[in-house]
Amino acid sequence: MDQQEAVALTPRAQAKARRRDEILDAAARLMARRGFHAVRLDDIGAEVGISGPGMYRYFSSKEDVLAEMLLDISRRLRDGGRAAVERGGDPAEVLDALLGVHVDFVATEPDLISVQFRDLGALPAGPRHEVRSLQREYAEMWVDALVRLRPELPAVDARAHVHAVFGLLNSSPRLPSMAEAELRRVLTAMASAALRS
């Protein structure tokens, strides 16, 4: 929930929205550790002090929780990508801005990366299709920026570079533990080199 949305809501609605965010954070933590299929809606509720039946005031099912998590992060990445592209600059600056958006994501949302990687297939068809559509839109921003930077590169090769870099960046939860600043430095250097190789 962004600040404008929060201002437009009543205090009661703001409290409910904050509670939903707490539930989503707890669900991401649990699902990252145990996997979607091993986590029950009751487990998520217990993590935030809500009884099983009380969870239904916020989410209709565990699939609903997963859909909201993965749709939200897909929209945030797409919107961050759009903002990076709209700020403009030369092709290298745009590509570096896109890289910054993704590195921010992987440095701050490791649980969501793990859940998305492992449990996207558990989404019902409708939300899964929407997540995939958002992901494609986001990836194509990278492809366009890379082709502008390296016009000799066919689009199919640029797409392969971009998806390989996503694989590199999204592997961050499985890397040895390191301080966030060091993680950002290492991932940015490696991804930048891969895009330009």
Rank of each mutant, 00 (worst) to 15 (best):
Q4I: 14
A8M: 14
A8W: 06
L9T: 04
R12W: 07
A13M: 14
A13D: 15
A13Y: 11
Q14W: 08
Q14M: 13
A15G: 10
R18C: 05
R18M: 13
I23D: 11
I23S: 09
A26S: 12
A27Y: 00
A28T: 12
A32M: 11
R33M: 10
R34V: 07
G35I: 09
G35D: 10
A46S: 15
A46P: 04
V48K: 02
V48H: 02
V48T: 13
V48W: 02
G52N: 10
G52T: 08
E63G: 14
D64R: 11
D64S: 15
V65I: 15
L66S: 12
E68W: 07
L70V: 10
L71K: 07
L71S: 08
I73G: 06
I73K: 07
S74T: 15
R75P: 03
R76D: 13
G80D: 05
G81F: 01
R82D: 01
A84F: 07
A84I: 12
E86V: 14
G88S: 06
D90K: 02
A92I: 00
E93G: 03
D96E: 09
D96H: 05
L99F: 03
V101L: 14
V103H: 00
A107V: 00
T108E: 15
E109Y: 05
E109V: 02
L112N: 05
V115K: 04
F117R: 12
R118L: 05
L120R: 14
A122D: 12
A122I: 02
A122H: 11
L123W: 00
L123Y: 01
A125H: 13
P127E: 10
R128G: 01
R128K: 12
H129N: 09
H129A: 15
R136A: 15
A139Y: 10
E140A: 03
M141Y: 01
M141H: 04
L146P: 07
V147F: 01
L149M: 08
P151N: 04
P151E: 07
P154Y: 04
D157F: 00
D157E: 08
D157L: 06
D157C: 05
A158V: 03
R159N: 09
H161N: 04
V162D: 05
H163M: 15
H163G: 05
A164Q: 02
A164C: 08
V165I: 06
F166Y: 11
F166S: 00
L168M: 12
L169S: 05
S172Q: 09
P173R: 01
P176T: 08
P176Q: 07
S177M: 12
M178H: 11
A179G: 13
E180V: 10
L183W: 03
R185Q: 13
V186R: 11
L187R: 00
T188M: 04
T188V: 08
A191M: 04
L195Q: 03
R196W: 12
